[in-house]
Design a binder for these strands. Structure first.
Lengths: 258, 258
DNA sequence: CGGGGACTTCCGCTGAGGGGAAGGACGGCG
DNA sequence: CGCCGTCCTTCCCCTCAGCGGAAGTCCCCG
């Protein structure tokens, strides 16, 4: 093929994959020109690549001309063993928590300076929240995030406390305050937030810990999101802690998860 | 690029995607040579493509040399709006059914002559079953399958009843018998199976119906899987029916779902 | 009715990529 | 202990797949 020398310089098989990179959680449906722009691919090339990918089933083309991820990538994606073991082991426990609370339950792991939500259960009466399986949210503004941050290496904490994003008017962005909160989380083994990520929602989260020869390790965080006005938030902690301990126990002795 | 003239003749951007085709539910982890063989790609080429895909994050390479689907494809796959609306609307109802029964709950749609499982909830005490989100199981051997088949067009029924696969020794493979069962399913609005897909598991399923101007249309099937020895299977039907009706009602007025 | 933005089709030139060949790295066997 | 079979990796030359500029089509909007 020619031209490749142009801008960017993807080395990955042609630009095909670059085109897929244009799609993300904020941009799940794109028009031809959006894809071309976002991926830095010349329009003509993007046009052909999209057509090929669509023919293969990786993308689907809607009647309005927009492209979106298709069945084939969905299928392939489901085969990815992302935290597979953790999710399988934890799912029943999340259900238990949901049954007990009727609220939205989350399981997240730390990925860099983000909380990656790997499992989620949400009922009809639960508060609507942004998180979905696959979401990555900031560590400093969510319950599970604070729990994960509290056990993260210093350099990660350092990064996370540098210019924390303001998500709502309640987000704690003061470095000292956040540091103090983290200490508190470590001491109590429990994190709380109140409308720091989305208005109307509060959360409680606890660490999921596995005992290793070298000592206990936090491998995930388990949390519930409740309406901000709910007063009995304290009641939720014990339920979470029991579940988290159950998960930790169930994980022990199993393969590694990472 | 050269050689392309070889066997096969993929027209999709190089062979890169062909290589991904080698991965499926039965073969989620493959070695280089397996990929090469399964995709009909020369070993050398497969080697390079896998390396490129791995560098991009589409694939991950395990320490044992096997490749598996990586984080990137997982992310992309989650963006696919496969039955998105149906799943979002139905999830809370599945939770309700699970809460009431403590058994594995499934939501499936028909895809050709297969039942595609689009949502699933499974608790700790539930019977272990093969189905997962993304699984495709035969229509004639599962509860949700029978429900979907009962409302399928004639040619699909025709195909499904031709050489039905034998999954266990209890699978009904006799054409007349299956046809009679379908009639029964239509009449009662309810399907049952007993160890037809996996030993030890029985199931009950009902259709999820949406009222259209042209009349009611079955858009999905809702089912539970229970231990084969459980005697009160009849008790489950009402729960399912209430939930199915709830889903149908919630779906009405919303966009279409294919 | 004319201008502009978005999409589609064409096609010639070229360097990206196909894949044969050869070179490790194991591991089992005689 | 050396030989051979299997699997993975590296090299590199030749070729045509595919890049992308240009021109054409559609449709909306003023």
């Amino acid at each position: 093929m020619a031209g490749g020398a142009g801008a960017g310089g993807r080395s990955v098989t042609s630009r095909a994959l670059g085109v897929l990179d244009a799609f993300d959680a904020e941009h799940p449906r794109l028009t031809l020109s959006q894809v071309a722009e976002r991926s830095g691919t010349p329009l003509t090339t993007a046009h052909r690549l999209l057509a090929e990918l669509a023919a293969w089933g990786a993308l689907a083309r809607r009647s309005d001309g927009r492209y979106e991820i298709g069945r084939k990538l969905w299928d392939l994606g489901l085969l990815a063993p992302v935290q597979l073991e953790l999710r399988q082991v934890a799912s029943p426990f999340l259900l238990d928590v949901h049954t007990a609370t009727r609220e939205t339950v989350h399981l997240a792991v730390r990925e860099g300076t983000k909380a990656l939500y790997v499992e989620r259960i949400s009922g009809r009466e639960s508060v609507p929240v942004v998180s979905q399986v696959g979401s990555r949210l900031p560590l400093h503004a969510t319950g599970v995030g604070k729990v994960l941050l509290a056990s993260a290496p210093d350099d990660v904490v350092e990064q996370a406390l540098t210019q924390p994003s303001r998500e709502t008017r309640h987000t704690v962005v003061d470095r000292r305050l956040l540091a103090r909160e983290l200490a508190e989380v470590r001491r109590r083994g429990l994190a709380r937030t109140a409308e720091e990520m989305s208005l109307g929602a509060a959360s409680v989260a606890v660490p999921v810990t596995v005992d290793r020869p070298s000592g206990p390790v936090v491998v995930a965080a388990l949390g519930v999101v409740v309406p901000a006005h709910r007063r009995d938030v304290g009641r939720l902690a014990p339920v979470l802690q029991v579940a988290a301990r159950g998960i930790g126990r169930a994980l022990r002795g199993s393969e590694q998860f990472r």
